[in-house]
């Protein structure tokens, strides 16, 4: 325990910068993931016959072991944070895409028919009915994607993109368990922290009428 605290103090600069890198990688990956998967999820609810194939493709990405995916990308993209980001985005896609799709498809058909019958346009139905009602699902997808990404971002170290993985890797190589812990613990805290913040947002985003 003492040696762990010593490690924290003596390596604090390194830990803090790795921590910030880790936040940067996870945050940017999830943000870009949302920017791609959310509109895509909406589009495939309009063209449902493409939904299964497209979700299928992202599911296949998900099954590639993360270390292998980083490995695949290095010969193509070289090393550095863009490579890590692309790998992380690929992992973030599936939960967001699938939940967006499922959330919108799951909106009660009679609700949508009521909107249509009263003369709402497709855009109005999407913005005023489908998205608000699907929001809890979409947020749940984003939460899953975020926790996943924070975890997988530890592997960014293998493509030279930094992050807390650097510290864990260094600790492993030097058989220094304190150092491993000094990397792993912040990862766990980060995952829990992000999850709690998003949980709070999710709660606030849930339409009031659905909470009863």
């Amino acid at each position: 325990m003492k040696s762990f605290l010593d490690t924290l103090v003596s390596r604090q600069d390194m830990i803090i910068s790795a921590f910030l890198e880790h936040i940067y990688l996870s945050f940017v990956a999830v943000a870009i993931g949302i920017a791609i998967a959310l509109p895509l999820g909406i589009i495939i609810t309009r063209y449902r016959r493409y939904a299964e194939p497209i979700i299928g493709v992202t599911a296949v990405f998900q099954t590639i072991p993360s270390l292998a995916l980083f490995g695949f990308l290095v010969p193509i993209l070289g090393i550095g944070s863009p490579t890590a980001l692309i790998a992380l985005i690929i992992y973030a896609l599936l939960p967001i895409l699938r939940n967006t799709y499922a959330g919108i498809v799951g909106v009660d058909g009679s609700t949508i028919e009521a909107g249509r019958g009263m003369g709402m346009t497709r855009t109005q139905i999407l913005r005023q009915i489908e998205l608000p009602l699907a929001l809890p699902f979409i947020m749940a997808g984003i939460r899953t994607a975020t926790v996943l990404t924070v975890g997988i971002a530890t592997l960014a170290t293998f493509v030279g993109a930094g992050g807390l993985g650097d510290i864990i890797y260094r600790g492993l190589q030097s058989y220094n368990n304190s150092l491993v812990l000094a990397g792993a613990l912040p990862v766990a805290l980060l995952a829990i922290g992000f999850d709690q913040i998003l949980k709070w947002i999710e709660k606030r985003a849930t339409p009031k009428g659905l909470k009863t």
């Binding site: 009660d108 009679s110 009915i129 009428g209």
Partner: peptide, 29 residues
């Protein structure tokens, strides 16, 4: 769209929007 706005429509399974207040539901059209 214009035609539907000029015709009232009540559906079988009520079809109120659960995320909108009664006031917002009624004043939709």
């Amino acid at each position: 769209v214009q035609l539907r706005r000029s015709i009232g429509y009540v559906i079988q399974r009520i079809g109120l929007f659960p995320h909108m207040t009664i006031s917002d539901n009624v004043s939709l059209v």
